[in-house]
Amino acid sequence: MSDYIDLDSLWKVLVIGLVAGAGLVSIFAAGLASLGASRGEDGTASSNPIGTVIAGLCFLIVAAGALLGIYVMLDK
């Protein structure tokens, strides 16, 4: 069966898919949650700067992940 399925690559694709795909999606979501929490329920007044900073960090990580993706894409 393993003649037909390259199991070695397959599990790598699945793990990286989970870490980079679901993982970065979650970090982005955490950024939004943090941004949302730093604002009032009505989505205005920024009362909590720490939340904004954490959100910024999350978005930076996601952007770095996207850049890494582009690097991998072009480095073939």
Binding site: L14, G17, L18, A22, V25, A30, L32, G36
Partner: peptide
């Protein structure tokens, strides 16, 4: 598999985020 996990977490993590932030952000 990957998208199911990603979607579940995205909703779970932003469950208490105001809708305006969530919608625009995503």
């Amino acid at each position: 598999a990957v998208a199911t996990v990603g979607t579940y977490l995205a909703y779970r993590i932003t469950a208490r985020t105001p809708d305006s932030v969530r919608k625009t952000g995503f």
